[in-house]
Design a binder for these strands. Structure first.
Length: 134
DNA sequence: CTTCTCACA
DNA sequence: TGTGAGAA
């Protein structure tokens, strides 16, 4: 039983993507993608002057955006992705990633503590201010 | 569509 | 960490 012959080409089935393909798919500007390239995070091949992104490039981009969402700098992301390509077993890469994530979690927790402390202070202030209300 | 540059948050 | 504009 053959299924619908005409399927919407699934983005993940494609072999190659243009800069507009990926910017639309991931909701980022083409300019941002060029910026990531300048920063050494992606290296699409060229057809003439036009960038051709492979499936690997697309996967890289997905990782870049995931890293950004959780607050890693582009430099940190670049380092982790580079390690992934360099280290076949991904052994060093895994250690570094775990270390980075641990560090990041610690920072977020400290920030949460600071926020909680600020909330308490503000709440206390409101209580105090109410006492001198007419 | 591409490159580059300068400025701006 | 990006964006916008202008020029080529």
């Amino acid at each position: 039983m053959s299924r619908a012959v005409i399927e919407t080409p699934d983005a993940s089935d494609r072999q190659a993507y243009t800069i507009s393909d990926l910017s639309e798919e991931f909701g980022v500007t083409a300019r941002a993608l060029r910026f990531y390239e300048d920063e050494g995070l992606i290296a699409p091949t060229r057809r003439g002057l036009a960038r051709i992104y492979s499936r690997r490039d697309r996967a890289r981009l997905a990782w870049i955006l995931r890293g950004k969402r959780v607050g890693f700098s582009l430099a940190e992301i670049r380092e982790m992705i580079d390690l992934y390509e360099a280290d076949e077993a991904h052994d060093i890469q895994r250690r570094v990633a775990i270390a980075r994530c641990t560090e990041r979690i610690a920072l977020l927790k400290r920030q949460r503590d600071d926020i909680d402390a600020a909330i308490v202070e503000l709440t206390d202030f409101i209580a105090l201010a109410r006492q001198s209300e007419p």
